[in-house]
């Protein structure tokens, strides 16, 4: 039950995509998302499809893993599609019922937005499916390093993330223990009005909070005892090594970005 939380949706495989440096993955995704929404040129869109498709194949993760995280988003995409379909008033009229008119522009616009969203979600899933949250945190910390100069506490943010990753399963385990303990005392969490059910959560949340404060205090003391004194002069056990494949991956996405700009002018 806790697997999904701690390792996110990470699916371990021995693939090229898994081995790419998290920094490269984050940068590539960023480029992809920004430029995917800039151009609507067919060449750019096909290229985006090809890139996503290739990454998908290289990652060697079966499609069913993507579906798990996509159910909700699929609904979202569908509604966005409908919204654009009905709201766009361009092109020729295709459907003309008394209560509904659909223009050809609506079909184009709706499909375009659906395609973009789908590619975006697929890419984002690819990132989380092939990278552990620890690596992601690490990658983000390194990428944000320049922000340190403008006083963004990058080290502290990363440490917070990593402590959260460490403790979420522990807290979940504790929650289920408390739930069981309260149920053994006759608490009922699944019946009654919404208000009643919300109120029944109080006896879970209070012990959980109290425990968490105790934990936080203990942890702070333990960290102090282990010589923690902030990010200054700290070395890192986790090393990220930029490899040739990382440069190639970034290269592909930079090319994509450039092409998007070029075709943007042609339009």
């Amino acid at each position: 039950m806790f697997d999904n939380v701690i390792i996110g949706q990470y699916v371990p495989r021995n693939s090229l995509v898994h081995k790419i440096d998290p920094r490269a993955k984050l940068l590539a995704i960023l480029l992809f998302i920004i430029f995917l929404f800039i151009s609507r040129h067919p060449v750019v869109l096909s290229l985006a499809i090809v890139i996503t498709g290739t990454t998908f194949i290289l990652a060697k993760i079966p499609f069913r893993y993507y579906i798990k995280g996509m159910r909700f988003i699929a609904i979202l995409i569908f509604f966005t599609f409908l919204l654009h379909l009905f709201m766009t008033r361009e092109g020729t009229v295709i459907v003309d019922w008394p209560w509904l008119t659909v223009y050809s522009g609506g079909v184009v616009e709706g499909s375009l937005i659906a395609l973009r969203l789908f590619l975006l979600v697929l890419m984002a899933s690819l990132l989380t499916l092939t990278t552990t949250p620890i690596d992601l945190t690490d990658g983000m910390e390194r990428l944000m390093k320049p922000l340190k100069r403008i006083r963004v506490p990058t080290h502290e943010l990363a440490l917070m993330m990593s402590i959260a990753l460490r403790f979420i399963p522990t807290l979940l385990g504790e929650t289920s223990k408390i739930v069981k303990a309260q149920m053994a005392r006759g608490a009922n969490f699944s019946e009654g009005s919404l208000w009643k059910r919300l109120k029944s959560l109080i006896p879970i949340l209070i012990p959980l909070f109290v425990q968490s404060f105790k934990r936080a205090e203990d942890l702070a003391i333990a960290m102090e005892a282990r010589g923690y004194g902030g990010g200054e002069g700290r070395t890192k056990f986790r090393q990220l090594r930029w490899k040739r494949n990382d440069s190639i991956a970034i290269g592909v996405f930079v090319m994509f970005a450039l092409l998007t700009i070029v075709f943007g002018f042609i339009e």
Binding site: I134, S162, R215, L219, I221, M223
Partner: peptide, 11 residues
């Protein structure tokens, strides 16, 4: 320390 859960910092 006493509580094994409250002194492990890293994931």
């Amino acid at each position: 320390f006493q509580n094994p859960d409250n002194q492990i910092v890293a994931p």
